[in-house]
Amino acid sequence: MIMEITIVRTLLSILGITLVVGLNAVFVVWLERKVAGHMQYRLGPTEVGPAGLLQTVADGLKLVSKQIIFPRSADTPIFILAPIICLVPVFVALLPVPFSENIQAHELDVGLLLVIALGLLNTLGILLAGWGCDNKYALLGASRAVAQILAYKIPLLLCILPIILLSGTFSLREIVVAQDHSLWFALYQPVAFLIYLVAITMETNRSPFDFAEAESELVAGFHTEYSGMMFSLFFLAEYTYMFVAAAIASVLFLGGWLGPFFPGPVWMLLKIYFFLFLMMWFRWTFPRVRVDQMLSFGWKILLPISLLNFLLTAGVMAAL
């Protein structure tokens, strides 16, 4: 009996996560194009489906039907492996994300650690993509992605630590519960909140930190040689990763599913798409930062501030 429940639960989780990934990609790409359009005196997609909602589906079908081109000098196994390594971890990273008190694929004591660890694999995928296709633009893009990873990962972790101190747990669900009877952690930790926002923009390779792609410099960066479905896997991974990062941000800082009037999942989705909208707003407003500026920004400004913030929090907690 317990065995059967576990199997059904696992199947439901897989189905749910696949649905979330698919529907999110359809919706976020549509949203991004609409947001970009309205910021640029345009309308964005309007033709396919109501208000152009099915445009992404049509684009997806087009990408699936296209030929996948393998460069002759590419390292084929790595070339094929790279998009998969980018995509699979984000599926797994959705496991511990709670959408309400009881909607969660799998409750983990170390859910937060798992998400952070899987986030690193994204960069491995980019590195393999850049290395495997034997293209100088792609290699430059990949090397940029690897160079930037430490510059944002350490401040990111140092921003998460105060939250763990406040809530006393690594479980994403427990972190939300800890905010139930107090203020949202964004109000206790405004500095960490802001730095986290910057860091996830860097982590998801979004403009103004999109060096790995950097269209005007590196053509398309690490995925220059990818076409058809292989390219769309990267695309899917990026948008899903944005979703995961935004979900973690709302869990850590904005109280996850907590909120008046609406049921939990609605609040959770509202907060997630609020963060996604912010990231789109950044992208369609700012020019790209230069690589060395980003590195010195990460190491010389974000790191000391977040370290100081962490030490202060720890000191105050100890004193209390």
């Binding site: 640029q40 005196y41 999109d210 269209e215 005007s216 407003t285 020019p287």
Partner: peptide
């Protein structure tokens, strides 16, 4: 020029 710097929106504002 702004496209070269990675900003897309000014391009369309100028084109308007």
């Amino acid at each position: 020029f702004l496209l070269d710097l990675g900003a897309f929106t000014p391009f369309l504002h100028a084109f308007e």
